[in-house]
Design a protein around this nucleic acid. Structure first.
Lengths: 213, 213
DNA sequence: ACCTGAACACCGTTCAAGT
DNA sequence: ACCTGAACACCGTTCAAGT
């Protein structure tokens, strides 16, 4: 029974298994740490550094896994407003499937160049629809701002309807809270309403733009 | 020169100075740690725990400071769409003034009961405008989702226009990036476009609702 | 190339001791 | 009540040593 040391004959680690283990860890524990990840992989912490650029690299792998199911290709085959809707819903679903991962990714998800393919697809779709070139990026990022906020909202704590002793709770707020859906429906309603309003507003913007010409 | 130990005759710390020092620290260093905060306050780390419930408590103080300038009272004096606009802009400005703090607060800002007064004001305004009770909370949260995403976007890295060697960068994307504003204007454009679309979409929703009656 | 184990500098929190 | 200083269990990263 000699201690295993030195390079193994067959590699024990690769980026795919590190990413998968990290996502499982985040889903299960709600947090990511290198020691916990190494434990789950049956390996020393320092081994991970041979395959990935530290914790940030691991988070990158998690991001790729979580965002893999986002459908932006729809912009090539659907009219822009329907494409925006399916893009948005797959975006939300992707993050809603991994609520804890959202917090890990939120602060570095938007605007990174990792989603170039997504931006490219959306850009093409909106340009073809007739939106002005100088506004297309703004529209895409503006919508994504909403999507990221909605993704964070999925795992937000529910506001209790009973706000008995709180001064700030007006009757109007109490009524609105009582009438609002609860559970998973709460964040879904906010998402649906916001998305519908955004698309409707963009439709109006497009009409106004086309009449100017 | 005896070592200062034991309770001081006059307290050296209070919640207000802790919060102010924490926000300064975040603004200057981009991160918050208890040791750095203690150093800045000229005090031992453990002293902070006598006034605040740990790191989470410090973050709460930072949140209160950052969000203090958000104007939700406008809902009481302006028509709903103008109120939504000023609420949104003061919201964005509040976070834009402390870009690093956004990352610290993003994962626990929305839906918390700390902003009850804000929710109350918005709720009253939207109810009076004629939005249906069961949708008012959803609308407020939906808009706030966008606002938080936009706040995160303020400090997002700029996508470089030069994407020479990248396969995913289509010509359409290159054109859109080249035509889009850069610098601080980039995130502001995304905010303006998204907010205008949201408000316009909600206007349409309200009209449809009023015609149903 | 790839894994180990030790080392380093950090972190948040607790708590007895002091006034 | 309020501050100290030490202690604890954690964390991310580096690096020489081994095959």
């Amino acid at each position: 029974m000699s201690r295993r040391v030195g390079r193994p004959s067959t590699p024990q680690l690769d980026r795919a298994s590190i990413g998968a283990a990290a996502l499982e860890l985040v889903d299960r524990e709600g947090a990511l740490s290198m020691p916990a990840l190494a434990r789950r992989l049956g390996v020393q912490v320092s081994s991970i550094y041979h395959h990935v650029d530290g914790r940030a690299g691991v988070i990158g792998l998690v991001r790729d896994l979580v965002t893999a199911d986002i459908d932006a290709a729809c912009f090539a085959v659907e009219p822009w407003d329907r494409a925006l809707d399916t893009w948005a819903r797959t975006y939300r679903n992707a993050f809603a499937a991994h609520p804890a991962a959202v917090r890990l990714l939120a602060t570095e998800t938007i605007g990174g160049r990792q989603n170039l393919a997504m931006y490219a697809a959306a850009t093409t779709g909106l340009l073809r629809a007739g939106f002005p070139v100088e506004q297309v990026m703004g529209i895409v990022v503006g919508v994504e701002n909403f999507l990221l906020g909605a993704a964070l909202d999925v795992s937000a704590p529910e506001v209790p309807i009973a706000l008995d002793d709180d001064e700030a709770a007006t009757d109007d707020l109490r009524r609105a809270l009582a009438a609002a859906p609860s559970g998973p429906e709460r964040s879904l309603q906010a998402f649906d309403l916001g998305l519908a309003a955004l698309i409707e507003g963009l439709r109006a913007l497009l009409v106004a733009e086309q009449q100017r010409q």
